[in-house]
Design a protein around this nucleic acid. Sequence first.
DNA 1: TATGAATGAGTGTTCATTCAT
DNA 2: GATGAATGAACACTCATTCAT
Lengths: 210, 210, 210, 210
Amino acid sequence: MEEKREVHASVKDENLIKKRRDQMIHGAVSLFKEKGFHRTTTREIAQASGFSIGTLYEYIRTKEDVLYLVCDSIYDEVSKRLSSLDLGQGTLASLKLGISHYFKLIDDMQDEVLVMYQEAKALSQEALPYVLKKELEMVSMFERLINRCVENGELDIGKEHQHLLAHNIFVQGQMWGFRRWALKKAFSIEDYITLQIDLLFSGIQGYQTK
Amino acid sequence: MEEKREVHASVKDENLIKKRRDQMIHGAVSLFKEKGFHRTTTREIAQASGFSIGTLYEYIRTKEDVLYLVCDSIYDEVSKRLSSLDLGQGTLASLKLGISHYFKLIDDMQDEVLVMYQEAKALSQEALPYVLKKELEMVSMFERLINRCVENGELDIGKEHQHLLAHNIFVQGQMWGFRRWALKKAFSIEDYITLQIDLLFSGIQGYQTK
Amino acid sequence: MEEKREVHASVKDENLIKKRRDQMIHGAVSLFKEKGFHRTTTREIAQASGFSIGTLYEYIRTKEDVLYLVCDSIYDEVSKRLSSLDLGQGTLASLKLGISHYFKLIDDMQDEVLVMYQEAKALSQEALPYVLKKELEMVSMFERLINRCVENGELDIGKEHQHLLAHNIFVQGQMWGFRRWALKKAFSIEDYITLQIDLLFSGIQGYQTK
Amino acid sequence: MEEKREVHASVKDENLIKKRRDQMIHGAVSLFKEKGFHRTTTREIAQASGFSIGTLYEYIRTKEDVLYLVCDSIYDEVSKRLSSLDLGQGTLASLKLGISHYFKLIDDMQDEVLVMYQEAKALSQEALPYVLKKELEMVSMFERLINRCVENGELDIGKEHQHLLAHNIFVQGQMWGFRRWALKKAFSIEDYITLQIDLLFSGIQGYQTK
DNA sequence: TATGAATGAGTGTTCATTCAT
DNA sequence: GATGAATGAACACTCATTCAT
């Protein structure tokens, strides 16, 4: 269903490729988080991955491939963990639950989200679209969730509002990732979820606050 | 009132410093926007500024100084253009107007906001706080605006909601800057403003949609 | 017995390090002799060593490391070739022989001695002590030789004279290295040795010139 | 009597040239002593001299000119203060006095001597000879002093020994300058003078120790 | 005569990438 | 498949020197 950008490997054994790339992604995430993509060297990535620089290049073609692999893997993880959302029943409660799951997930994957968020734009024009596409897919997921509520008569907002709302939810999730430094002073993740849902929902037409 | 981090210049003439740094900031913004801070070389910055690499270094000490100067200048510009907000009367109308001004401003300063948004984190631990502080000041500006409405009895939301709402407004402004690629497909800036205000306000307790 | 300042290498193979550094030292000595440390570029050192600038930096961390390596190696060589001195029997004849060996050695290692002599002071405060320490060890070597003669009753001079005499011998050796331009007009190395020993010894108390 | 290498100045007023160059030499000596010629920038020299970089270049053509001027001035000073030596009567006592004067002078002019000693070799092939020539003149001064003693019958050593002795005295003077770090642990300048004269003289043929 | 802003060739150093073993 | 030594283009930054004012 979703196309991937193929990253070339010299090695043939697919299992080995998977294994080595997992080592690589794991090592790279913590390095990228600590010092950013540009300040991290391929040598450091190789070392953090537990193999030599030569071996690293058996599984990628360029340093940027590592970033792509990292971003791709993070999105996959996020998508996988969010896939349950689609099971929503089209009730406001299930939409709220979805948002809550999503925000908690972001909190769980702080490092990864931060990395993706801050470094993705370093991807080349070739690789960036693949990542942005995934982002839009996630927005769409929320949009579908919202739309189902509308179709179910639980919400009464127009197409455009639905679309923007989905974006807002998505960005508010990321916001907890990239603005933690400011938000943590005032809110725990639970507070954040409660308050954001308050703010979000009490304004949606047709929803009766009291 | 606000402390600045001093950037060292070898040249003494303050007017000249101002002039050259303006050239520099202008040249750097478009380069940073195009290729990011890390992929931009100091020679390119010098060239885009209209002077030699030697001259560039008469006005800064390190490449990072350029980034700081750029971020600092953008925030100054944004702050200056937002200062009218504080004149708000504590009515919902003036709050909406403030938000609208802010979103339009972001739209105006697309390039600058994008750069600041994406590259600020490349600042060293020494310079970053100065920039983050400015960010918080802007959030506070919105918080005061909101709070005035609450005190005026035009809004009825708690302290925490006020704080988060200010953050949301701030981030939604930035969002127009850093997610234009996705939003522009669906909305013009005017649409965006209208819809976001709808979404924001129609949920605030005590506000009567229609 | 003697501590070394470790110079970091990225390469692990110790034999290779030894080999490459020998190439490096050899290339650097002739460059430093010709144009001095400061006027020699790292690129020139790499080229004279027979490898690329990248490879050079696999075996050192900074340009100064090259100077340290050069100085260290020269002292090692001098020390090695002088170690026979310690075998002296405590006779005036063996002291003279030692001096003669030393002066000839300096003559042999003209370039190296000149370099060390003129460039060592360019070493940082961190590396300089290691080199000065070696210098003092060499002075001590002569002092022991002299002292043995005194204990043997072949010489009758006080502690202080012994100490200064050792310094004088050491410096007179170097003098042949760094003042060759003036001395060569009047003396061959053999002349120099004979005359210096004359001057040195005919003044030592208890030594009977005729 | 002695040729100078002319250093070009754009300014005409000879008195001004003298004044500015004195400022320059004074400033440069302390800088060269502290960080060496190569690590000192022309800007620093200008600043230490009390005028601007532009003014500096009104009185010299290249940075090396400063070094030449410094070396030249130091030798002039040393020569001037040693000129009394020539008044010696051709007695051993006056030779000793001369040596003593010279050693004390070196002690007095520690910084200058050290600078000259360590940096002179950085002079270009064009300027170096002028400095070396001065050095030889000083050696000759000692040689004449010694020779007068020989002619007076107070000493009985051959031409070659006389020549080498003069070199030795000259170098032993410098030695106090450039090896103070080692010698000061054991000797005061007075000790050094006494002991060196002991060592020097008690060996000269025809001189009766006691 | 004095100033100091402007210049740009040159420097030490890094690091992604390759390839022989 | 794995290794790590070798490479050199590229970079940030310096500084001697010039010249318009």
